[in-house]
Amino acid sequence: MKMLIATDWGWSEMLWVALISICLVFFVLVLLVGVMKLFGCVFTARQAAGRPAAAATGRVVVQGQLHEEEIAAIATALNIYCSAMHDRESEVLTILSIKRAYSPWNSKIHGLTQMPDRK
């Protein structure tokens, strides 16, 4: 049987293509749901197995496994704490010119650390 090219398609072919396509989209994504569920089971089991050991070593929270909401709560609490701690400054910046007379104590040349002379 000769395969029709897309330009010659009629309603029958269009309906079939639409139906098959949507079924394929669902098939592929359902397959991915299955794979990811499997992944989830494996990793949740791994995390559950690793938890007592972590607690015993005192490392309860593993880096990267802190929940987003917990991170947000900690960040907010820190922000509130830091803003409450911070004293209010005048916010006025003043530049005072200071006359520096030459002295060997602030001279760059004399202030350079001499390299040790290895012999």
């Binding site: 309906l15 293509v17 639409a18 989209v25 669902f26 994504l29 359902v30 749901v33 990811m36």
Partner: peptide, 19 residues
């Protein structure tokens, strides 16, 4: 992963519009 199903359902518009 169930979210994949919602992502698939939202593609219905593509094929309905195709027709």
């Amino acid at each position: 992963p169930k979210s994949f199903l919602l992502g698939a359902a939202a593609q219905i518009g593509i094929f309905a519009t195709f027709l």
